[in-house]
Amino acid sequence: MKQTPLYENHLELKGKIIDFGGWALPVEYTGILAEHEAVRTKAGLFDVSHMGEITVKGQDAEKYIQAVVTNDITVLTDNQIVYTTMCYTDGGVVDDLLVYKHNNEDYLLVVNASNTDKDYEWFKENEFGNVTVENVSEKYAQLALQGPNAQDILQKLVTEDLNKIEFYHFLDNIDVGGMKTLVSRTGYTGEDGFELYFASEDGPKMWKLLLEAGKEEGLVPAGLGARDTLRFEACLPLYGHEIDRDITPLEAGLGFCVKLAKDNFIGKESLAEQKAAGLKRKLVGFEMVDRGIPRSHYEVYADGNKVGYVTTGSFSPTLKKNIGLALIETAYAKEGTEIEIAVRNRNLKAVVIKKPFYTKKYKK
């Protein structure tokens, strides 16, 4: 398994290491529920150094990225970020990613760890014009400081006024304890917070510095388990679950990042056709009526027929309910519709509810 620069730190804190897409990462330290609660009420620190970073530079950088992703990056100002998907020609999702704009000729793309190599190949395959595309993942460590106390903690370590960094914006070359850092107001928890990108060799030092700075504010190290329950409550998609090769962004409810009005981009034709014809299936939220925890890939039934499957399901630590996301036939996607989830060979009652399950606490 690949290790992040913080592997020894995780062992030191008795993190329970699992294989996550070929990476040795902590699933929890003290427990998923406690770490989840800390992020919702105080703050949590995640090692996300496994994420992939790809730079795109050159005269045609904007034009080139615009042709590969579904969102419109021409509306970005310098130091702004946009969430987007990129698709195959048939509309299936290659990956979802963040596009960081330094300027028209310099972008940083942050992609999912398990897709980094595939994404890089896809970018190279579709390259045109005057651009240089480089996979710089190994040069970066990345930490996510998330929760209502995140700003107070980070503010102790920087001279810049963090209030000036709006949601989905960033500042580069900030000095954090003598380490040059890109700080963005982003995250994957539904809470306010920051993601910090810096030289991989500085990983252990930055980790300790932040944990020390956040002692009074209740900062705890958090693992992948809490990261998943937090993102799930806020209905943030996970590649391989809510989106993948066989699910389009429109089906996944990500139409906001598919700009069909912009010039040609890979997958545009298929997505436009799908939209015009009407979606045959949709991603919905549901709540269990009968007792039982829904899990990924459990089958969904309605009127005695199989109508889809669960993409993510769990006990929600914040709502104290068993809930899930499912990709089902559009006819059953309306709120209040009764469905059944096949849990261990028994069909248990559930009902379609509104998404997201948790109101996001982003600082605008």
Rank of each mutant, 00 (worst) to 15 (best):
residue 78 D to T: 12
residue 78 D to Q: 11
residue 82 V to N: 11
residue 82 V to I: 15
residue 83 Y to A: 06
residue 84 T to L: 07
residue 85 T to N: 15
residue 86 M to W: 09
residue 87 C to E: 07
residue 88 Y to N: 05
residue 88 Y to K: 10
residue 89 T to W: 03
residue 89 T to S: 14
residue 90 D to S: 09
residue 90 D to T: 10
residue 90 D to W: 10
residue 92 G to E: 05
residue 94 V to H: 04
residue 95 D to L: 13
residue 95 D to K: 03
residue 95 D to G: 12
residue 97 L to S: 01
residue 97 L to H: 08
residue 97 L to Q: 03
residue 98 L to R: 10
residue 98 L to Y: 15
residue 99 V to W: 02
residue 99 V to I: 15
residue 100 Y to V: 06
residue 100 Y to W: 13
residue 101 K to T: 04
residue 101 K to Q: 08
residue 101 K to I: 01
residue 101 K to H: 06
residue 102 H to W: 12
residue 103 N to S: 13
residue 103 N to I: 05
residue 103 N to G: 07
residue 104 N to W: 00
residue 105 E to P: 01
residue 105 E to R: 08
residue 106 D to Q: 12
residue 107 Y to V: 08
residue 108 L to V: 14
residue 109 L to T: 01
residue 109 L to E: 08
residue 110 V to G: 01
residue 112 N to G: 13
residue 112 N to V: 04
residue 112 N to M: 10
residue 112 N to K: 08
residue 114 S to M: 11
residue 118 K to Q: 11
residue 119 D to F: 06
residue 120 Y to F: 15
residue 120 Y to P: 09
residue 120 Y to S: 09
residue 121 E to F: 03
residue 121 E to Y: 07
residue 121 E to N: 13
residue 121 E to M: 08
residue 121 E to S: 08
residue 121 E to G: 00
residue 122 W to M: 09
residue 123 F to D: 00
residue 123 F to G: 02
residue 123 F to P: 01
residue 123 F to S: 02
residue 124 K to G: 06
residue 125 E to Q: 14
residue 125 E to R: 13
residue 125 E to F: 14
residue 125 E to T: 14
residue 126 N to D: 09
residue 126 N to M: 09
residue 127 E to V: 06
residue 127 E to A: 14
residue 127 E to H: 06
residue 128 F to E: 12
residue 130 N to A: 12
residue 130 N to L: 12
residue 132 T to G: 00
residue 132 T to P: 01
residue 133 V to W: 03
residue 134 E to N: 12
residue 134 E to A: 11
residue 135 N to K: 12
residue 135 N to Q: 09
residue 136 V to F: 02
residue 136 V to E: 13
